[in-house]
Design a protein around this nucleic acid. Structure first.
Length: 547
DNA sequence: CGTTTTACTTAGCAATAAACGT
DNA sequence: ACGTTTATTGCTAAGTAAAACG
């Protein structure tokens, strides 16, 4: 079905551990101590993170210490019994110096990186040379879970060739394992797209090496995704009418299904699969919402029937929203919450599997996540129509584009931590704007006097001078406008990440068509990587493309 | 059929590269 | 040319959903 012929390079393994020099010491309880290489390596993982907040967290320290002790010799184990008595600062200083040094002599390293990329970064699939996304096998280190993860700090083990499964066609010559080693398995499964896999020891999940988003196989999949969303567009009215009817159903499971679907559609919530308790951070999506995540207000801030959501979603990003809903939805949620404890499931008769089976019956290929894609893309299209002003210049139009993009990011709750340097960078930008304003008033004054001069002299030379000054004023006005637009854009973007929606939710043909329609170079919207990923769309869409 | 496993997409942050101002 | 700021790329965790299993 998928792979026909593949020439696959060997995955790049993490470099072997290099012991630190003897003058970089570790202290336990104030006394210097030479660690065995195994224990030392794990210690360096911790030392490298010393500046990070992780190392102050109890769970992180506890998990790290437990796993570290496993790597110690019996003597070390007997001696090192308290993490707070460990002093890693010399190691930490050493690694900081190392990375500083690496920055300096990066000329050769850049060349070396390029060589590694050329040798290991590409494979041939279906006679096309394709870029591999992650051709380096993940190095050992300490697990950094997001949010309140019970496993943070655990030791992520080193992956050896014996852990690795290689997948390629039978007739292709598979890559040789490094000398003196063996692969775990060489597989020929052309029903899947991964090239290499291994088992990870923290969650027990499988990790894969796959192709870059620019590859044919990923591009086609991406295109299909948006085609499914466009098919939803054609029947979404029918589906909405259907779930509104189902709010009145006699059956609880149908009412729950209908209300959940309404939230997924209206608020672009994720499906919310069940998760194993205690294995991951406690986060939820729509189907896994609990009573404690919801508050109901018959009336709030002048609106009736308000549902307040407050929960941690994917990556432990908080979702907080107050939404006025139809009375019928409100009454249903009230019903679902009756006689329940805060930690009980809101939708106790529903899960993602039940919901998706229902959706499959409503439309071929329909699942909960299609609503997110559909609503994101249709919102972009609408917003672009609304916000683009034909009379404005290119930077202003791009601001409008970013605003449309931002509306989607807000809908999808794509947040980011405000950049550490945000306030400062806003300030420098403001300084620039002020300087530009001064420059502009100077230029205007000069223009005025040039005009006066020309009026008196009435010669060609002074006329040309007026023209030149006029040009200068216009140029500065444009520069000022650009800066002001930039400031607005940045301010509005403080806590919002545009990248995720741009890359994963917005049909790129909408953006390409918009660029063509308003004669905006597509490079203003998509950088090089993005243009490679969306090559199919840039190729395909005309200025009149409708999602 | 419920549970587990597998395969793939989506996600934010960190590291690195490029652009910018001096 | 250099140091600083901003944009891009890399990394890998954390989701969704379907297949496989018992």
């Amino acid at each position: 079905q998928k792979m026909i012929f593949t020439t696959l390079p060997r995955p790049v393994f993490a470099p072997p551990y290099e012991p630190i020099p003897g003058n970089v010491r570790f202290y336990y309880d104030g006394k210097q101590m030479k660690l065995s290489p195994e224990a030392e390596e794990v210690a360096t993982f911790f030392a490298k993170m010393l500046d990070h907040e992780y190392t102050t967290k109890d769970i992180f320290r506890k998990n790290f210490f437990k796993d570290w002790r496993k790597e110690m010799t019996p003597e070390e184990k007997a001696k090192i019994t308290d993490l707070s008595k460990c002093n890693f600062t010399e190691m930490s200083v050493y690694f900081k110096a190392q990375s500083e040094a690496r920055k300096q002599m990066s000329k050769d390293e850049k060349l070396e990186n390029e060589r590694v990329l050329q040798e290991y970064g590409f494979c041939v699939m279906d006679n096309h040379k394709e870029r591999i996304a992650n051709f380096r096998i993940e190095p050992p280190g300490l697990f950094r879970g997001r949010g309140d993860h019970p496993k943070m700090g655990m030791l992520k083990r080193r992956i050896r060739p014996e852990d690795v499964i290689v997948n390629c066609s039978k007739d292709s010559k598979h890559p040789k394992p490094p000398p003196g080693t063996k692969w775990k398995e060489v597989r020929h499964d052309n029903k899947v797209t991964w090239l290499v896999s291994w088992n990870e020891n923290i969650q027990g999940s499988i990790k894969y090496i796959m192709l870059n988003p620019s590859s044919r196989i990923k591009g086609e999949k991406d295109w299909q995704k948006y085609e499914t969303a466009r098919r939803l567009k054609k029947c979404v009215d029918r589906i909405r009418n259907q779930y509104r009817e189902d709010w009145k159903s006699k059956e609880m499971r149908i009412r729950q299904r209908a209300v959940a679907l309404y939230f997924i559609d209206k608020l672009a919530l994720r499906a919310g699969n069940e998760k194993e308790e205690g294995e991951t951070a406690d986060t939820v999506g729509c189907c896994s919402l609990r009573v404690e995540h919801i508050n109901l207000y018959p009336e709030k801030d002048g609106q009736e029937f308000v549902v307040e959501f407050d929960f941690l979603g994917k990556d432990s990003i908080r979702y907080y929203n107050k939404v006025p809903v139809e009375k019928r939805v409100y009454k249903n949620v009230q019903l679902f919450m009756e006689n329940k404890q805060p930690e009980d499931d809101l939708f106790d008769r529903l899960n993602t599997s039940i919901l998706n089976k229902h959706l499959q019956e409503l439309m071929d290929g329909l699942t909960a996540k299609v609503f997110r894609t559909y609503n994101a893309s249709i919102t972009l299209q609408q917003q672009l129509k609304e916000l683009t002003n034909p009379d404005e210049n290119v930077p202003a139009k791009i601001l409008s584009y970013n605003r449309a993009n931002r509306a989607v990011a807000i809908l999808c709750n794509h947040q980011r931590a405000p950049p550490k340097t945000f306030e400062k960078s806003m300030q420098t930008l403001q300084t620039k704007i002020d300087a530009k304003k001064d420059q502009l008033s100077d230029a205007r004054r000069e223009l005025k006097s040039a005009k006066a001069d020309a009026k008196v002299r009435r010669d060609e030379k002074s006329k040309r001078a007026v023209e030149a000054k006029k040009k200068a004023v216009e140029r500065i006005e444009e520069q000022l406008m650009k800066l002001e637009v930039q400031a607005t854009d940045r301010e509005e973007n403080k806590q919002i990440a545009l990248g995720t929606s741009k890359l994963n939710y917005l049909d790129p043909r909408i953006s390409v068509a918009w660029c063509k329609k308003w004669e905006i170079p597509v490079e203003k919207i998509y950088n090089k990587t993005q243009r490679e990923k969306f090559a199919w769309a840039i190729d395909m869409a005309d200025d009149d493309y409708e999602f």
